[in-house]
């Protein structure tokens, strides 16, 4: 099923990119609606509407929204939205703002046998500080007791935190493992008590 869809999509792309042989095509107009500003980390709604020369909606047309992106030595247009217009001529989708850079959007309709290709652009400026959005949830955790190992980098000491436990952890980071520490302290103090009895046996045996 998936392969069939993929094959169909491939054919479609080929069809879209093939030079149009139809001489006189109707003009089309593409409008891209996006907020002018967005906050970092926010998910915004983006829509595009495709109409013909008379303003009547074109349905079933493929619209692709892309933005130029760059990562390491790779650069190019990354697809953000890819859909077909509904009977109102619209496609809509959501985009997560993951960078403080202004986001340049470009929507494109590739044209078909009836209509010419059309493009539209929008620019979203981003407000707010960049904070870590991606949160890894790692490791053996006891709620409220310890952080994930290595969550604070190479140092494996658990973070201090507030409250009594936090202050205890400042004294000894390994105390974040206090369930184990408590068991050990209990057992070892019983050992110590038994040893103290040994000293009392010794003194009880002393000749007057």
């Amino acid at each position: 099923m998936r392969r069939a869809v993929a094959a169909a999509a491939t054919l479609l792309v080929l069809a879209l990119s093939a030079p149009s042989v139809v001489a006189a095509a109707d003009p089309s107009r593409l409008a891209l609606t996006a907020p002018a500003t967005a906050r970092f980390g926010e998910t915004i709604g983006v829509g595009a509407r495709l109409t013909d020369g008379q303003g009547a909606p074109i349905s079933g047309a493929r619209i692709v929204v892309v933005t130029p992106m760059r990562f390491l030595n790779g650069a190019g247009d990354a697809v953000l939205l890819d859909g077909r217009t509904d009977k109102d001529g619209s496609v809509a989708g959501e985009i997560a703002i993951r960078s403080t850079e202004p986001l340049a959007l470009r929507a494109r309709f590739g044209g078909d046998t009836q209509y010419d290709a059309a493009e539209a652009a929008a620019r979203i400026s981003v407000e707010g500080e960049a904070v870590a959005l991606y949160e890894q949830h790692a490791g053996a955790r006891v709620p409220m007791l310890n952080q994930a190992p290595g969550a604070d980098g190479v140092s494996l000491a658990a973070g201090a935190g507030d409250g009594v436990l936090g202050r205890m952890r400042e004294l000894w980071p390994a105390l974040s493992g206090w369930p184990i520490a408590a068991a050990l302290i209990t057992v070892w103090s019983i050992f110590a008590f038994a040893v103290s009895l040994l000293f009392r046996i010794r003194s009880a045996g002393a000749l007057p």
């Binding site: 038994a194 009895l197 046996i201 045996g205 002393a206």
Partner: peptide
Amino acid sequence: ALGWRGTPAQRRLLDRAITVMMIV
């Protein structure tokens, strides 16, 4: 031998120590 002479006080203490360790 810790100065063991088998006095009642020593026996009581030893018995107690053994009991504690036996349980823990």
